[in-house]
Design a protein around this nucleic acid. Structure first.
Lengths: 192, 192
DNA sequence: TCGATTGTCTAGCGATGCTAGGATTCGAGT
DNA sequence: ACTCGAATCCTAGCATCGCTAGACAATCGA
């Protein structure tokens, strides 16, 4: 039995290597540079090995996305728990979210821009995605305001952050005033 | 001279045909289906003809984006001018914007998701893009609130709309509550 | 030690964006 | 009216993409 277990371990290890390498390559040179050939070369295996772990490139993107969702949730929770008062918590959340998007553009793309074959906003949505939304909800729900559904408010707030993140990174918004825009957004949206 | 003029006209006409066909194909089957071969076949010319009009696929996307920017600006202005009062103008603007994004997903992608090789937020930004932003600014500047820079406010509002548009269309947000989210956004962001 | 199963690789398919170079058409000048 | 040059267009091909079939080798159970 031990032999099989060792093989399973090695296989899982290789799968992590694939995901980590894909992520690394994407952050370095963008997702366009993440081709199955290059990826295979970097992990020092042949192309078909990738397909014994994932159905295709999409699933690899999806795996990076799930990894990123967990990190995003952790980053948001760390930021909010270190802040005092609802207003400051929300501001910290917004900054942490945008900071994550700016620091991990490829991961953010995998999560929200590319097709990773993941289900969103449904029952069969993977746990890390649900949890990332939950992390937002925890702080944002408290500033939704009277009579406003916390989930709906969170969705709207999240969408605003997402818009700022993507437009800024795509060069549609100048990054200089990013901080001011965040402050303005928090001031208006959060009811304290 | 007349001969040359006729040729120029025909050439311009063919360029319009390329852009219109690319847009049509993208709306029908998505941008992935817009390959140079399919596009060439639809316009009943060979592939290299495309490259005598545009540097490559990117520029074709860019051309569709510029066309879309003009339409978006017109749609926004039509909606705001038909509404009474600042609050209702902003709500109409938001609805018109999201409606445009939902009705013309491929054009919206060309504008804000794909790389059309266009410059944004700079001096050499094409006029239609500047004008689309100006259309937003005209109405949104009035509800920025005291001491808030109208341009900055418009950028933030625009980012929020963009986030709602993209997340909804990508299946990250359920479309059922779209209207509620818009109303909430307008209520919070617009100072009347 | 043998046979079967598992694991991996080489080679190749169809499709992509883009381009070189030849063929054809067309207009200008005599 | 005729020829020649230039503009115009197409055929064919390149490198690369995601993905897969089928051959080969390594490994395990008997």
């Amino acid at each position: 039995m031990s032999v099989q277990e060792r093989k399973q371990r090695e296989r899982a290890e290789r799968e992590r290597l694939i995901v980590a390498t894909a992520r690394e390559l994407a952050e370095q040179q963008g997702w366009d540079a993440v081709t199955t050939r290059r990826l295979a070369e970097r992990i020092e295996y042949s192309q078909p090995v990738l397909y014994s772990h994932f159905r295709g490139k999409r699933e690899i993107i999806g795996a990076v996305a799930l990894e990123g969702a967990a990190e995003l949730a952790a980053a948001v929770r760390a930021a909010t728990s270190a802040a005092d008062g609802p207003r400051e918590q929300v501001a910290a959340l917004a900054r942490a979210y945008l900071d994550f998007a700016a620091r991990n553009p490829a991961v953010y793309d995998a999560l929200f821009q590319l097709d990773g074959g993941l289900a969103y906003a449904q029952e069969d949505t993977p746990e890390p995605l649900k949890d990332a939304f939950a992390a937002l909800l925890e702080s944002l729900g408290e500033v939704a305001g009277d009579g406003v559904h916390p989930g709906l408010f969170t969705e709207m707030f999240w969408a605003s952050l997402h818009g700022l993140a993507t437009l800024t990174r795509a060069g549609r918004l100048l990054p200089e005033d990013a901080a001011q825009r965040v402050e303005l957004l928090v001031d208006r949206l959060a009811v304290v």
